[in-house]
């Protein structure tokens, strides 16, 4: 009997939780705020779903109820992606070592 694809996806999901567990414990506590902003940015990869939804309208009728929700979701996710990565970058640029500071 064939294995349901759902099982494969669940396997990926569960293994990723384990990876997340070990990776996040190794994050230094002083970088917990950038951790939150970067996880915010990457969880907005949900934009792929929004793009599919946005492009689903047919050529005569680009805006149907479903695609409008898609377009709105694109904007929301884009705010997060750009905002999240850029603010993380801004924060990380501030973490300097003593030596550099004295120069």
């Amino acid at each position: 009997m064939e294995i349901d694809p759902f099982i494969f996806r669940s396997s990926i999901f569960i293994l990723s939780i384990f990876i997340g567990y070990y990776v996040v414990w190794s994050v230094t506590p002083s970088l917990h705020t950038p951790l939150m902003s970067v996880t915010n940015a990457i969880s907005s990869v949900i934009i792929v779903g929004a793009i599919i939804a946005g492009l689903a309208g047919d050529s005569e009728n680009i805006f149907n109820t479903s695609s409008i929700f898609g377009f709105l979701a694109i904007s929301l996710a884009a705010i997060n992606i750009f905002g999240g990565f850029l603010v993380t970058q801004r924060m990380l640029a501030m973490y300097k070592k003593k030596k550099k500071d004295k120069q």
Partner: peptide
């Protein structure tokens, strides 16, 4: 829509 959201996000950041 991507650009609208992106600009808002970049501005906030």
């Amino acid at each position: 829509f991507l650009i609208i959201g992106g600009s808002i996000g970049a501005f906030i950041a």
